[in-house]
Design a protein around this nucleic acid. Structure first.
Lengths: 192, 192
DNA sequence: CACGATTGCAAGTACCTGCTTGCATGATCC
DNA sequence: GGATCATGCAAGCAGGTACTTGCAATCGTG
């Protein structure tokens, strides 16, 4: 791996754990097994390295997509929710830090969450198709249901280790519960 | 206001905006209109001041409670959701910072979110009473519904200004939508 | 009035911060 | 084999960090 890639990788990890200020160029160099001067020769400044590191990290996360044609809603939504939850849980430190750091570095708002919109759109598309096929009842906002389900999964994934008392249920059960309620709200049982 | 209280107040604000490292004793003293030495004479150390400041700030937030006896579920839940959303939105900077800072200061995990559990319990109590009175259908987990609703409201409240693209709906509509889906999921319409 | 507590002020300590400079070393390429 | 390039190393800069010390001024209370 090139020096550049090594620096980007350790910087992302340090940033997730220690924030912008806590990620010092000395620590980055030491963690990458590289002289501190190399950091500045490669990226020019600490800020440039951090921005690039977060950008690369975010771009590498692939979105979770639902099947093109809805079949068994419960199993498909549950599998999708679990995968989404797992992906968010892996990146929870980075996400939490970005949320806080947004106060002082608003420029990383767009870069950090560009994937969410496409996932929301895909879920709405999926539920819309399901309704068209009669797998869902005619009532209940699909947009609100998508946002509510994704919000619930997102928050559980990034706060699970912080406040265990507030989420005593295992992650799988939590996701399954959210999916069950979403399907009930959209009249999945009634139509089937 | 005493010097001590002034320090606690500005420290909480600075912490919410700049994090633990970014909240320097110089800034605290300057913002409070006090000499820096007074900070150390009053609290001993920066860490002690920050912990006390966050503790006081969290303890001051009163929980939102639902009516003792459920009447009109939709209006009561919506009013409660709006109030809860507004309260979280006010404290969003502090909450986001605490979530990120938990990595380096795990000790503030319990102190920062002690209020959530009682609110969850109150909501479950309310929905249970509603079901007992036949205002809700017999199916659907009340615990999961409570957590899902609160998660959705919580995340919307603390990320609304960060990722406006992900939540283009006004807060009132978002909360109303979440409440509507929750009631649908628990069979409020059916039973009524 | 005197005493004690609170605070301000100036200075200083030891360490960390981002960043720079000058020079040596090794590999790579023509 | 010589030139170029990436990198390491040692040192240093100016400024910030938490925190301390000593001393003077203020103020309420006895």
């Amino acid at each position: 791996m090139s020096t550049r890639d090594a620096l980007l990788e350790v910087t992302a990890r340090l940033f997730a754990d220690h924030g912008w200020r806590g990620t010092t160029t000395r620590r980055i160099a030491e963690a990458a097994g590289v002289n501190e001067v190399t950091v500045f020769r490669t990226f020019g400044s600490k800020d440039a390295l951090l921005m690039e590191s977060i950008r690369v990290q975010s771009a590498a996360a692939m979105p979770d997509v639902l099947p093109a044609e809805p079949g068994d809603l419960r199993s498909e939504l549950t599998a999708w929710g679990m995968a989404h939850h797992a992906r968010l849980h892996e990146r929870r430190s980075m996400i939490r830090t970005c949320l806080a750091e947004f106060e002082e570095h608003p420029e990383l708002g767009p870069v950090a969450c560009e994937g969410a919109e496409v996932t929301i759109a895909d879920s709405i598309r999926y539920l819309g198709e399901a309704r068209r096929r009669g797998l869902l009842g005619p009532e209940g906002s699909l947009e609100a249901a998508t946002v509510m389900l994704m919000n619930a999964i997102f928050l559980d994934a990034i706060t699970r280790d912080v406040v265990p008392g507030c989420a005593p249920v295992p992650a799988e059960d939590a996701v399954a519960g959210f999916v069950d309620l979403t399907l009930r709200a959209l009249g999945a049982g009634v139509a089937a």
